[in-house]
Amino acid sequence: MKLVLASNSPRRRQLLSDLGLAYTVRLQEVDESFPPHLRRAEVAEYLAAHKAAAYRAGLAPDEVVLTADTIVCLDEDVLNKPADEAEAIRMLQRLQGRTHDVFTGVCLLGGDGRQVVFSDQTRVTFRELSLSEIEHYVSQHQPLDKAGAYGAQDWIGMVAVTRLEGSYFNVMGLPVHRVWEELSRLTGASLLAD
């Protein structure tokens, strides 16, 4: 089995490398809009499967493509990547002092047609933040490529996250425990290097 990561995320690349999995990166543009009736985990799973479908025709029979999408949900609102610094500040103002949910949807699509789609949920609580702390984070760490305008592994994760229920790695963008389990099941082989 040859693993193909269809993601430009340095965090996902690092997590797969830390698992000891060999992979290649293959990228193509995919529309990330979703039907408005979808809610929470459904959005993340839909987007992961939608991304994988774009790779279906180019997969060899011995390849498995991994696609993922992470979203932040505050109540029923989906907070994706902010368009600019002003939107990032507004998102973080909404998140501060509250608990929100992070969902990462994952799709594993084999060149042989087998497919697994799943998601993982983590609840994250932020302490109350001052506007100057939020502005500092946005200007210094440029979180425009992150759902909800933050990365738990960044400065804001160290100073703002007071509670985390679920997988920390899920908040980083990949529920590696589930990826390992589902890849093992899908391939029917050990993922451990000999």
Rank of each mutant, 00 (worst) to 15 (best):
L3R: 04
V4R: 03
L5E: 02
R11I: 01
R12H: 01
R13M: 07
Q14A: 14
L15Q: 13
L16H: 02
D18G: 05
D18P: 04
L19C: 13
L19I: 01
L27K: 06
L27Q: 12
Q28M: 13
E29R: 13
V30Y: 04
E32K: 02
S33C: 03
P36G: 09
R39P: 00
R40V: 01
E42W: 10
A44P: 05
Y46I: 05
Y46L: 05
A49P: 00
A53C: 02
A54I: 08
R56H: 11
A57F: 05
L59H: 09
A60P: 00
E63G: 01
L66K: 02
A68W: 00
D69N: 06
I71E: 09
V72G: 05
V72T: 12
E76P: 00
E76T: 14
V78M: 07
N80Q: 14
K81L: 08
A86P: 00
E87S: 08
L92E: 12
T99F: 03
V102M: 11
L108H: 01
D112C: 00
R114Q: 14
Q115P: 02
S119G: 11
Q121S: 09
T125M: 02
R127H: 07
R127M: 03
R127P: 10
E128S: 13
S130M: 05
S132D: 15
E135A: 14
H136G: 00
V138W: 11
Q140P: 03
H141F: 15
Q142R: 15
Q153R: 08
W155R: 07
I156G: 06
G157N: 11
A160H: 12
V171R: 04
M172Y: 02
M172H: 04
L174I: 04
L174P: 07
P175T: 03
P175G: 02
R178F: 05
L183N: 06
S184C: 10
T187L: 15
A189K: 14
L191F: 01
L191Q: 06
L191P: 02
